[in-house]
Design a protein around this nucleic acid. Structure first.
Lengths: 147, 147
DNA sequence: TATTGTTATACTCTATAACTATA
DNA sequence: TATAGTTATAGAGTATAACAATA
């Protein structure tokens, strides 16, 4: 009589993948002297320009405190700009041409590395995994932070 | 003509789920005054007893340095025991009855919380997500750390 | 009074190196 | 010489609180 396999904790399945993907993003961002979070912020600004700092941080599940220093660096490098809008307390964030180029380059490298990581997974499974992860992410946050 | 959606970074999909699952494990472990890693170590010892410290740490993608203090605490609480085997440099790790009970309790709570988190996902999708995550985890590590 | 951005501080986590005892 | 376990330390990452400017 075969005993059924014990139910695994989902984190035990997600964690190794998350760690590998984190490493991929770290490495790709580092080639442009960016941290993973700096790249993440920049890519949100690239795909959803015009939001203020707080909304950008919250979309990423990041902190309004920590985003400040990252934006300082990104702005200093000419990858984005801060503009004060009608509400003079808040800064809206706008991507620059250089910023767009950096996001595109980093993202290209990330996608190549992702494809290598999952090379042995059939394309249909990969699409299905992506769909299910997007669905789970929505349940985990109430909204999706993926662009 | 509709523009196709830009390809998302997989980390952007995995991260929110991983964070939610991490929080679930933190909370469940904390009820027994354990950290997530202490619970993870204990559960490896429960399901794969007799391994030494190094092998246990490596299975988790954890550090042989950091596992020491965790094992000190777990042993002190009577949740596991260290025994020196034939090679007197290495300690094999063994679960106790109390340890098994704690793992079972924490895991039960984790599974309840996971079910709540993914309550809106059809059961078939959840099984499929689990299967695909297990497959991806294997590719990310060369072996699966899930028990 | 509440909100956005900002800064400072303390705390946790993590990585690294070095030591010991065995082999 | 190499390995398992252990310890100490420095660095990175994170959370929290408080302040200024504006609403």
């Amino acid at each position: 009589m075969a005993t059924s396999a014990p139910r695994p904790d989902l984190l035990g399945l997600v964690f190794p993948l998350a760690r590998a993907l984190r490493r991929i993003e770290d490495d790709a961002a580092e080639r442009h002297q960016l941290s993973m979070w700096q790249y993440a912020v920049l890519s949100v600004v690239a795909f959803r320009p015009g939001m203020n700092q707080l909304a950008t941080a919250e979309l990423l599940g990041y902190s309004r405190n920590r985003i400040v220093a990252d934006l300082d660096l990104l702005e200093q490098r000419g990858l984005l700009t801060r503009r004060s809008g009608s509400d003079r307390r808040s800064n809206t964030l706008w991507i620059t041409e250089d910023g767009s180029a950096v996001v595109a380059q980093v993202q290209r490298r990330i996608h190549v590395a992702e494809d290598e990581l999952l090379a042995d997974m059939p394309a249909a499974d990969r699409r299905e995994l992506q769909r299910l992860l997007a669905s789970a992410a929505t349940m985990a946050t109430g909204t999706t932070a993926a662009d």
